[in-house]
Amino acid sequence: RELEAFAERFKQRRIKLGVTQADVGAALANLKIPGVGSLSQSTICRFESLTLSHNNMIALKPVLQAWLEEAE
């Protein structure tokens, strides 16, 4: 499924970029996305391991996609 594929791609790109899960969480606050502050390292970890609820995964995907586009 698309969500699982994105989570895997996100993790691979993050590692290639040399960015930690905690760095991603902190950097999200800098994107100034309305309603989104920083996220914890454990939230990023749970996203990558697909252990968040489906609704949370869907909500976080565009936020993490925005970070990925900014980071690349």
Rank of each mutant, 00 (worst) to 15 (best):
F6C: 01
A29L: 07
G18E: 03
I33N: 04
E69Y: 11
E72D: 10
I15E: 11
Q21T: 07
K32T: 10
Q65L: 03
Q12D: 14
A22N: 13
L17Q: 00
A26L: 12
A5C: 03
A29T: 06
Q12M: 12
N30C: 06
V63W: 13
E69C: 13
R9D: 15
N30T: 13
V19G: 04
N56G: 12
L64K: 02
T43A: 08
S40N: 08
G35I: 02
A5F: 02
A27N: 09
R46N: 15
R1T: 09
V24W: 02
F10S: 10
W67I: 01
R46E: 14
E8S: 12
L39C: 14
L50T: 10
L28S: 02
N30H: 12
L28G: 01
A27L: 06
F6V: 01
S40F: 03
A7Q: 02
T43P: 01
A29W: 08
E4Y: 09
N56Y: 10
W67R: 05
L68M: 11
A7M: 01
I15R: 03
S53H: 08
E69H: 05
A27V: 09
V36H: 11
G35F: 06
R13C: 06
Q12L: 11
D23F: 07
L64C: 01
E4C: 08
E69T: 11
K16Y: 07
E72K: 04
R13I: 14
V36G: 06
E69W: 06
G25W: 05
F6K: 00
L31G: 02
I44K: 15
G37C: 02
A5L: 14
R13N: 09
L68G: 02
L64F: 04
G37R: 11
G18A: 03
L28R: 00
T51G: 08
A22C: 06
K11N: 01
E70S: 12
R13S: 15
G37K: 13
T43H: 05
F6G: 00
S38W: 04
E69M: 12
G18Y: 00
Q12T: 10
E8G: 10
L52M: 03
V24Q: 01
L31C: 15
K61I: 09
K16A: 14
R13Q: 11
F10V: 01
L3H: 05
R13A: 13
L3S: 04
